[in-house]
């Protein structure tokens, strides 16, 4: 029951234009954390103490686990420079613009905020640059590939694959 409720809550946030994955780790915490953190990270008035943190020394969860969870739980997941609302790089900005055309929820993480996460993502996908886009848990590529797939219709098909579930 609790699981169902928290799933509903989670879905509610997923239906927002962008879902910002929190930096927290475990599944249950992610769902609870989401409730409080979605509106927080970009707020300039927020004190650092209240930001989600990646300090994982006390847990056994690795950065790789976080990446795996991100791409599993987010239909579309982008690791980028900056946020979807405020990209910090032309390529990341391009990728977000392309994905936004399809009006699907996008999970994102700003790799500029966390060099260790950045390295973990690079190792996970074996891809050297950002942005990196995952759809349905599958690594799709960077901005050149996403643009190419947008132009030839493949991206539409890829995104459809899930929504018909």
């Amino acid at each position: 029951m609790a699981r169902v409720l928290s799933n509903m809550l989670f879905k509610g946030f997923r239906s927002m234009e962008y879902t910002r994955a929190t930096a927290s780790a475990s599944g249950s915490f992610l769902q609870h954390g989401m409730r409080f953190s979605t509106s927080v990270p970009n707020d300039p008035d927020t004190h650092d103490d209240f930001k989600p943190t990646n300090k994982l020394e006390s847990s056994e969860i690795t950065l790789k686990d976080i990446v795996e969870q991100d791409v599993k739980e987010n239909h579309v997941m982008i690791y980028m420079k900056g946020d979807p609302e405020q990209p910090r790089c032309g390529f990341s900005s391009l990728a977000v613009r392309v994905l936004s055309e399809y009006r699907v929820p996008i999970g994102s993480r700003n790799i500029l905020e966390d060099p260790e996460l950045k390295n973990a993502v690079k190792a996970f996908s074996m891809w050297p640059t950002f942005p990196q886009i995952f759809i349905n848990g599958e690594f799709i590529g960077g901005s050149d590939i996403i643009l190419n797939m947008h132009q030839n219709g493949e991206l539409k098909e890829k995104l459809k694959a899930k929504s018909s579930e």
Partner: peptide
Amino acid sequence: RLLERHRMVNGALVEEMKDIHALSIT
């Protein structure tokens, strides 16, 4: 596939990529 092709290009430039900030494979 395009992804594999891009991987090949990235792979060919492993050394150079250390000093390249942005590589666009058009």
